[in-house]
Structures are given as structure tokens and as C-alpha cells.
Design a protein around this nucleic acid. Sequence first.
DNA 1: TCAAAAGTGTTGACCCTACACCCATGG
DNA 2: CCATGGGTGTAGGGTCAACACTTTTGA
Lengths: 228, 228
Amino acid sequence: MPKKYNHIDRILVAVDCIIFGFDRTKLKLLLTKRPFDPEKGKWSLIGGFVGCNESLDDAAERVLFTLTGLKNIYMEEVTTFSEVKRDPVERTISTAYYALIKADNNVKLLSDYGAQWFAINDIPSLIFDHSKMVEAALEKIRSIARHRPIGFELLPKKFTIPQLRNLYEGIYETELDKRNFSRKILAMNILEKLEEKDKLNSKKGAYFYQFNKNRYEELVRNGLNFVI
Amino acid sequence: MPKKYNHIDRILVAVDCIIFGFDRTKLKLLLTKRPFDPEKGKWSLIGGFVGCNESLDDAAERVLFTLTGLKNIYMEEVTTFSEVKRDPVERTISTAYYALIKADNNVKLLSDYGAQWFAINDIPSLIFDHSKMVEAALEKIRSIARHRPIGFELLPKKFTIPQLRNLYEGIYETELDKRNFSRKILAMNILEKLEEKDKLNSKKGAYFYQFNKNRYEELVRNGLNFVI
DNA sequence: TCAAAAGTGTTGACCCTACACCCATGG
DNA sequence: CCATGGGTGTAGGGTCAACACTTTTGA
């Protein structure tokens, strides 16, 4: 496309990814060591610049893929950070995206970029305004997880009710009554009970369930209000 | 600041403002006629490019001020639109902001920029992806207005309960039971009843109230959950 | 005196919370 | 046989929705 808007500033545009994962009982965050100056070696979100021929969504997916090798991951925009001096090198605006990745995908992450998982209540100090981004992303998923079934994105396809409860307890850093929780979630009729049991976490074993997305969408059309 | 990130695309960055106002019973939107080609004369949100020395918030406030002459207006980011071809002239990303302005400020708007108010259920077709922006902004204020007292931003300082109810009815395009509504809002203890009555809209007259923001914030700290 | 909007209370249904015991199994 | 986590039911309180009549007053 030819340039036609004249005498107007053009600006560096970036995305940064807040990558959440869930490990048994804790919500975790994937951080990397910044590979170049300034602040080389400091903990940082993974990010990248947006090219002329990609949207922000495209760029976020590309950045996530570069670190994790994963595609088709649940990602959503959080907000854009645009303070003039947020990046000391050059004026850059950056849009934060959060990503939810399943525990059973975590395979070969830790090798590259010095990436490491941190529990959300134990996050080191981060470069630039990345701590603010993490705060904003946490606030966003906490707000959204109450009203939309995004929690399932953080679990393997087959999960147990206690696992799901642990997840929500991890997200909200609180405890939930197990009877009330399972009644509530099962009453929505969006989980399918499987024959199989998970015998890893208990001797009795807990039944596996899976999320029925089509069912959920149909129920939403009929006025279902997902609330945890 | 010196440029130090090399070989990276720099991009035009803009903001567009979705300006909401409330007129008796309807939620309205302020649109302008685009003053230059392409699409000159078509209905459009008011927008502007972001300069090197201002944040997106700064730019949005500047743009709003240019059209309305108003400052210190309630504005919030909606989301960023970044499809590669969304602006046919040159690749531009644009962050949408919504603004809530009080009816009694509307004075000298209509003179400039061919600006005109439209009821939200009667919006003409807009240039580029501006209709999507309006949709996203509406969704956002509907979602937020349930949990945060932003409605007051759209009303004069002194307002009556029936006016407030009309506002929420306008936002959600629905009808609300007046007994349940006033019980609910008054129970929160965030409104102060004034001596004065509004005699314009009825013969009996309705008492004016005003929003006590300090009170609200104190109650929130003590766990108040604002819900309409 | 009448039209038009303001204001006010009660009841039943439902939902949410709190709470404790038995079950199945591996070791 | 025992320790561990999984699974289930009920009762009481609170909240929400539905509903209709009286009041005020300007014209």
C-alpha cells in the first residue's frame, strides 16, 4: 500500500504474551530471560514487534508459537500499553495478550529462551511495565473465568471435577466447597462423564469428564448463564 | 529518543472515539462526517493519529476535546483494531475508546464537524470498521455498567430515580420494574436524596439524587458488589 | 376533576451457603 | 485395616421477580 497520510508519526508496535498454565493446584505464568540489551538477562514476558503485514492477533500467535511450538491456542487481547517512555530504547506501544495452555502440552518448553514457570503469587520483578501487564491479565482472566468457560483451556481434554475445582481455586486463590462446586458445574449440563477414572491422585479414583463445547454454545443460545 | 531497534516496521497508530450520550430515554452516539477522502462525507467516528509524544489515552482525550470542547470526561479503552487492510489508504491500527458525556454538556457540539447524535438502534452505516468498533463499545459498556457505576457519567450531577432507570433501560434496551429498581439502587446507599424535585417531567415531581462517589468507594473497599 | 408520572410493600419461588458422613481403594 | 481423597443431600436464609394501588399536582 502506498503511503498517503503525510507528516504523521509512525510508531513501533509490539505484542507481549502473558502465558498461563495450570499445574495440579497452582496457576502459573511462563517467563523468559530477555536475550538482548537493555535489561539483558532480566525476567520478561515474551514479546515481539508487529510487522506491516500482520494483525496484532497474528503477531501474538506467532510470538507464542516461537516460544512454545503451539498453535490454535486460546488467546485474547488484554489491553494496550502506550506510555511514551515505557520502552527506554525507542517509543513503542505494546498490546498485551493472555494465552491459556494445557498442562499436557508443556513438553519441550523449558529448553528455549531460558523460559521458566512461576506460580502467580511468586512472580519475580519484570522489565519495563511487564508487571502491570501481568496484573491486568490476571484481572481479566479472573473477571472472564466467572462468566465464560475458559477454565477448560487450561486443563487436559479429560479432567476430573476435583482438578477443575483446584483450577478455579488457583485462579481465585481461594477455597471452594466441593459439594457446592460439583453440583453447580454439573447442573449446567456442559460436562460429559466418561467411564474412565483418574487413579493417579487418589486410591478411589475420580471420574474423568470432558467439556462439551457444542452443548455449551447451544445452551448459551437458549439463555444459559455460565457463572462459577 | 534515538532509534535503536533496526529493520522493524513502524506503523500508523490512531484512536477512534465512540461518544455516548443519554437523551431522556435513549442512549445515543455522536457521529461526524468524515472531512477528507477517501469516504469523504460519510458517517464516521471521530478519530485521530497518535503522536510520538502522547499515550493512547492522551490522544483519545485530545480527539474528544477537539470535537466537544470537553475535558475530564470518563473514557475507557475498548480494544484495538488491527486488520492489515482496515484502512485502505495506509496500514493503520486504531484503538477504540468509549466516552460517556453528560446531557447538560451537549451545548455547542452540533456546530462543528457536521456532528450529529444517533440513537443506538438507528445508526447509519459507517466507514471502515467503525461499525465493529461501535458494536464492541456497546458490548463493553453493557458489560461494565452492570458491575460498575458508570451510568452516572451519562446523567447530570442531579438526577431522579426515574431518569436513572430510563438510562439503564436505554443501555440494555429493556424494561425494568420501577419498584425493584429503586429498591435495589437505594439499598446500596450510594445515592444522596436532595430536597429539590424535578418538576419538568411530571406534575408530582421526582426527588433529585446525587451519586456519592466517596461513599461508593468506601463501600467497595468493604466488599460492596455493585450490580444492576 | 382528570391525566400522568411518582412512589411504595408483600409474597412465593428459587438459589446459594453451610455443613458431615460414607465410599472405594492401594498400600 | 487404615489413610487418603472422592462423592453425595438437606435445611435455612437471603435474594429476586412479580405484582397494583395511592399520591401529587398542573392543566
